[in-house]
Design a protein around this nucleic acid. Sequence first.
DNA 1: TTATTATAGTTACATATGAAACTTATTTCA
DNA 2: TGAAATAAGTTTCATATGTAACTATAATAA
Lengths: 149, 149
Amino acid sequence: MADGENDKLVLERFLPYRLSFLTNVISRKLARLYSEQFDITPHEWKVLANLSRHPNISAAKTGEKTAMDKVAVSRAIKGLCDKGLVHKVFSSEDRRRSVLNLTKKGGDIYHQIEPLVIEYENSLRDILSQEEQNQLDRLLSKLTTHVGG
Amino acid sequence: MADGENDKLVLERFLPYRLSFLTNVISRKLARLYSEQFDITPHEWKVLANLSRHPNISAAKTGEKTAMDKVAVSRAIKGLCDKGLVHKVFSSEDRRRSVLNLTKKGGDIYHQIEPLVIEYENSLRDILSQEEQNQLDRLLSKLTTHVGG
DNA sequence: TTATTATAGTTACATATGAAACTTATTTCA
DNA sequence: TGAAATAAGTTTCATATGTAACTATAATAA
């Protein structure tokens, strides 16, 4: 560190901000795919997608799977129930625990949105060569495991 | 796409969510470096850092440089002025335009935080080999230019 | 038992954020 | 000129978010 370059903060090169900028742009574009047409928030979409893959799950489990905190999960579920996209009952074995499922309507809407979202991810990946995609997956995994939850 | 794997959404593998998760963890840790000791918000820190590098700048230019919207910039500047870290006057040539500078106190605090932040970035980069760091910089640049601001 | 502790989920409160409206100053150009 | 359009910043309002407090249920253990 003799050149006096690495001990000055330059926002344009600062890794956390570069990551954050890219992520924000991508998240905004992604959200537009379901927020406008379907009036679904990002949290709601995440819960919906997770319920599609993992039916009969509780709110707490949903939080684990999606890395959302329990308040965000609770609100997303409330929103989805109000819109008739999710059905909630409480478990008869443990009446604290909810049992969640997509309704018919929820499933229908999910299957309308899913291809749009997958297409968007593909459009992102297509910016990169196959080699670069592998690098990206690897780097994300490595960083994510090391920064700790 | 014949194997039926790439046409189902799996949150754990979905690029925007992996990016978002990593970014959120990093942003939270970064914010802790200045929020607790110095009572500075992320927006305020960003403006502070930018002013250190670009003195005598307006709020609008600050917004351009930091990719923040003008409301966030306005609020950050108000917070920094209230804390006595930034000095604001309006330009005599164009009295709509502000001219911003760090105060002595602002500069002092900035120079206390800067090494902590740089150290944190280094600790992130040190997770990766030099080769991987180059890959990451390259991938971020490529994705960022292609997703469009 | 029954008192204690822990868990699932919700609610309340305080703060953060973004979009649109607004104020003031400057520029444009009929 | 001076009316209309534009630009810089601020304020307002509606919504989003996170922390902590709260309710209800279940598990633990004395």
